[in-house]
Structure formats: C-alpha cells, structure tokens
C-alpha cells in the first residue's frame, strides 16, 4: 500500500481573524497527481503555504512523509514552484546557474547540467535571471524545483504567464515524472480543464472542501453536477477521458 506523502487533518487558517480555509482534510499518497482547484480567494495558495510551513495554521495537523510538519526537515524531498517570485527585480545579480542551485548544500555539476538541459535553458546558464523573459525565468525556477529529484512536487499556478507551447511542455514533463519516477505532484490552478487533463485526483476548494476524490467519482457525482452545472462537469470529465485514453 502506498505511503501517505501528505496528510492534512482539520486544517483551519485565518488572516486577521477571517477564515481563509476551514476544516480542510485530505490525504495524498505516493505517486498521486492531485489537482487543487477553486475560484480566486478560495484558499488554494493559503493551503499550499500551510503545507510548506510558510504559514502557521490556527487549527489542525499536517503530516509530511509521515512526520508532523514541525519535526519535518527533509525539505530537499520537496520541490516547490511558486506562482511568482514576488521580490524578483531586473537587477538581481544571480545567474541561472546560481538560481537553479539555490539552497543546495552541495554543488552537483552533473545534476545541474542534466536539469538545465531538460528545461532547455543550458545556453542561459551564465545569464542573469533578471535579463530573461518571464517564461525563461519560470523555467529556471522549475529547474530549481527539479534539480534534487524530489519525491513531491508542488506547483502553485505554475503556467499563468507561459505561452501555450511552453505550457504544454511543462505539463507533459510533470506527467512523465509522475508516471516514470512515481513523483507525487500537487498542482494548484483555477483551470479545471488543465486538472481534468493531467491530474488523477481532484480537491476543489471554496474556503472549505467542496469535493475531494478521484475524477471518476467527480464525473459521476450528482452533487458536483449540481454545483458546477452538468455542462461544466461534462467538459472537465471529457478532458480527463480524452487524456486517459491517450495515455
């Protein structure tokens, strides 16, 4: 039986007394590809920041790889790609090579070369990150998330500003990692179509859990048909069926 990579139990987080997420519970097993969806302000990013220890929940428990979050130290097992690098300015004096190795205790030239080539940014290795296009910057940050070959990848709205071609490459790559290396993936996006195409499980939030389960459950749920409308539900499920048949 696959081990639990993440176990979230009754999680509640408030900003200035207002509940951003309330009583969230779910489990992610090894090799899962979980899509987290919901409208703007539904608490998707807040949930991820709680899992990553950036925010401290008021209530509830989070276990990562079987350990309570406060005792968890194996952060190199997790690769995180944030929505955007808020503090990045055009004069940041970090080269692509430096950024990809960010936070690594030991430099690994082979892993660096492999990751840069995989992301198609080997020719940019010595360029400053501020000089790159947004797409190239995002690929650099993704390379940083992948370099340590983590067991868990968390993507928070990763492709918002990417062109369709790069977006497709990104999702194909993550799918391949999930299938080939059993890498667990959590993908946060408001685009349910994308989730339908790539993820196997869905967590739909609107401050609380609206739906959590497999796509098969989602597609046959009359409650979800009522919540989304049967047309939307059908469109999401159609994307999923199409991909399942293609794989």
């Amino acid at each position: 039986m696959p081990m639990n990579v993440i176990n979230v139990d009754n999680l509640t987080f408030c900003y200035n007394g207002l509940e951003a997420i309330s009583n969230i519970s779910f489990t992610v097993k090894r090799g899962d590809y979980l899509g987290v969806a919901g409208p703007n302000g539904s608490g998707k990013s807040t949930l991820i920041k709680n899992i990553l220890g950036i925010l401290k929940p008021q209530k509830g428990n989070i276990n990562i790889f079987g350990q309570p979050l406060i005792f968890f130290h194996q952060w190199d097992r997790i690769g995180y790609l944030p929505q955007r690098i808020s503090s990045l300015n055009n004069h940041f004096p970090g080269t692509v090579e430096e950024i990809v190795q960010l936070g690594m205790k030991k430099r690994n030239a082979i892993a660096l070369k492999r990751t840069l080539e995989m992301m198609g940014i080997a020719h940019l290795a010595n360029r400053l990150i501020g000089e790159l296009s947004y797409g190239e910057q995002q690929r650099t940050i993704l390379a940083r998330a992948l370099i340590s070959q983590p067991d868990l990848l968390i993507f928070d709205e990763p492709t918002t500003a990417l062109d369709p071609e790069t977006r497709e490459i990104f999702y194909s790559l993550t799918s391949e990692m999930n299938r080939t290396y059993d890498t667990t993936i959590i993908l946060v996006t408001h685009d349910t179509g994308i989730i339908g195409k790539y993820a196997r499980n869905l967590l739909y939030l609107d401050k609380k859990v609206i739906f959590y389960g497999t796509f098969e459950d989602f597609c046959t749920s009359p409650d979800m048909a009522g919540f989304f409308g049967s047309t939307s539900q059908h469109m999401i499920c159609h994307q999923h069926d199409k991909t399942e048949n293609n794989v």
């Binding site: 995180y80 944030p82 690098i85 990045l88 970090g94 960010l102 690594m104």
Partner: peptide, 19 residues
Amino acid sequence: YNDFFAITFDEELAQTMGI
C-alpha cells in the same frame, strides 16, 4: 552565504527549502 543568497532571492522560497 547560501542561505543569505536564497533569502535575498525570495524569502518564501527559501523557507520551503528548510532555510
């Protein structure tokens, strides 16, 4: 140095690396 560099790049990202 590595910690200072990571935090200067992005504090939240640095936090997710266990810094």
